[in-house]
């Protein structure tokens, strides 16, 4: 901290504790995401095929429909294994893993790094702009890797199944990522304003 602005600690005990907990969660998340990523990479070799999200036939559908005559339930989302898949499916599967997992890792590492810097006294994060850009890029990558590419993978894999095995592709796009990126943008603007106020107050006695 700048000697000229020395005064009361910028963070209270509770805020420091919260940041430490946040940092610990982020580090645990990084380890967990890395493990999941490694397992995902070796999964096709262990399982003997590419796991693909598809709509599969629901064996219990008949019974449900008997009880609920107005409901037509014919399929549920599940994961099917494509054996002897072509390189295209493998490429989509690994792209989904690496881009999605990488995005998640970037977000978690950015959170851990931001918490560390705030604990060291850089309350308004002089480099906040870069941190928020990294976090937004991570969210975007996670969105592409966990929603867009699996949707394409699912559609691309449909041809490999019998009509009875897979009823349709699973492709969902949620608005969560867009909302997160918008929230990160708003937080970045708030941090920049905070940094400006801090600069104005530097050396104020």
């Amino acid at each position: 901290m700048d000697e000229q602005t020395s005064g009361p600690e910028p963070l209270t005990k509770n805020e420091r504790s919260t940041l430490r907990v946040l940092q610990a969660f982020a580090i645990i998340g990084v380890i967990g995401a890395a493990i999941v990523l490694v397992f995902g990479i070796v999964a096709p070799f262990i399982m003997g095929g590419v796991p693909v999200p598809v709509v599969v036939a629901d064996s219990s559908a008949g019974a449900l429909v008997d009880d609920l005559p107005n409901v037509t339930l014919s399929g549920i989302e599940g994961t099917a294994l494509v054996e002897g898949a072509g390189w295209g499916l493998y490429a989509l599967f690994y792209a989904s893993l690496v881009i999605g997992g990488g995005g998640l890792l970037i977000v978690l590492i950015t959170v851990a790094n931001m918490a560390e810097r705030m604990l060291r006294g850089d309350t308004f994060l002089s480099q906040a702009k870069h941190a928020f850009i990294w976090a937004a890029a991570g969210v975007a990558a996670a969105f592409v890797g966990s929603e867009l590419i699996p949707g394409v993978l699912s559609m691309a894999a449909l041809g490999a199944f019998d009509d009875n095995a897979a009823l349709g592709a699973v492709a969902t796009i949620s608005s969560t990522s867009f909302l997160l990126i918008a929230a990160l943008g708003a937080a970045a603007i708030a941090f920049r304003a905070g940094q400006r106020v801090k600069n104005d107050a530097d050396g104020l006695v």
């Binding site: 000697e3 000229q4 020395s6 005064g7 009361p8 530097d202 050396g203 104020l204 006695v205």
Partner: peptide, 22 residues
């Protein structure tokens, strides 16, 4: 009603601004 550190900043001419209240 200010910290010794801030008073020292003022004394050693390292302050950039002073509040009217101070």
């Amino acid at each position: 009603g200010i910290s010794v550190v801030n008073l020292s900043v003022l004394k050693n001419d390292r302050a950039k601004a002073i509040r009217f209240s101070t």
